[in-house]
Amino acid sequence: MKTLAMISGVAGAVALLAGCAGGPSRSEAEYRQLALDTIKRDFQAKGQAKFERLTADDVQQACNAHANTPPADLVIKLTGAQLSTIKLPADDKYLGDWKEGEKLAQSGRGFTWSDKADQPAGGNCYNCHQIGPQESSFGTVGPSLLGYGKTRGNTPEMQKYTYSKIYNAKAFNLCSEMPRFGHAGALNEKQIKDLVALLLDPASPVNK
């Protein structure tokens, strides 16, 4: 019962500080700090999900502190830094195998405490995006990517952009809800190329 006893102390202190009835008694920044303190006290490592994951990096911190819309100068500074993390393929080739890309896009595996740390992660793409026309079970957290290559064009610039976007979505949109797959070590160069092919290759069902 140690945890509950510890919490009790906090509630007491909170009660003393709190104002009268009605709205919140503290500023948003104070609640953010309280939230962080609570998270750091009340979580435990499990499987591959270590405690350090709770510490926000510079991008996450900026987005957390500014409700996902940091001031312009901070956005410019941090997106620039994120852009410089992107490792482009040395052979300057961006289109892999769209069939392999489709498999990756389907797989939701990776990084949860129930995933084995030595198993490769999937792309999770269908969790958030419509992609291939044959797959009707798709999420809508991100925009539809159906017809992506057909509308955007399979140009060298688009290939490079698409590779970079998958590698580090925050380099283009600092507080995007899309993970930074290359930066996080979730997907390697070959896998990202396969996904670029899924989205841009004229032979991919995405562009039929």
């Binding site: 948003e28 609640y31 939230a35 926000a56 996450q60 987005c63 990084f111």
Partner: peptide
């Protein structure tokens, strides 16, 4: 209010 702030807290490998 602390719960609301927790729901907005992004961290971890996927920034969720």
């Amino acid at each position: 209010e602390t719960g609301r702030a927790m729901a907005a807290y992004r961290a971890g490998p996927y920034d969720f």
